[in-house]
Amino acid sequence: MRSFVTRCRQETIDLGKWFAASLKQGDVVAICGNLGSGKTQFAKGVCEGLGVRAHVTSPTFTFVNEFVAPVGDVVHIDLYRVGSAAELVELGIEEYFNQRTICLIEWAEKILNRLPQLYHLVKISHGTDEEERKIEIQQVQEAPA
């Protein structure tokens, strides 16, 4: 696990940009953290790093934003409004877990047990002052069920 501290919104975006360089098609990134912790900022940075040219904003309303990047398809998912894991099955979210697509999932804590066996976990928490964020990044390998 790698730990980082960012001191402003732009540093969170920059960290996302840097992290994007390690991603490849088929990767799933679970972004966890409270309201206002900077999940969308981090995802914005990742998209920028992957070469997405579109305007990346919070997908809370549209639930999923799909982008096309030089590295393949990128989807930015936000589970804020989702009530239970059962609803996700019917939503067909698992269809995005494929070899072509890089998936960024905000509020992923709601579906950690439904993610592929191998995924990147990004945990963002509030730091000591209003601008500071603690960001932990690790690769998780779940044992086969």
């Binding site: 309201l35 206002g36 969308t40 900022q41 914005k44 305007h55 904003t57 919070s58 809370t60 309303f61």
Partner: peptide, 18 residues
């Protein structure tokens, strides 16, 4: 111009939820 992150109504919804 448009929002770079959250929509205004989304801010209302999230603050109401808090």
């Amino acid at each position: 111009g448009q929002t770079r992150d959250d929509a205004a109504g989304e801010a209302f919804d999230k603050v109401a939820k808090m």
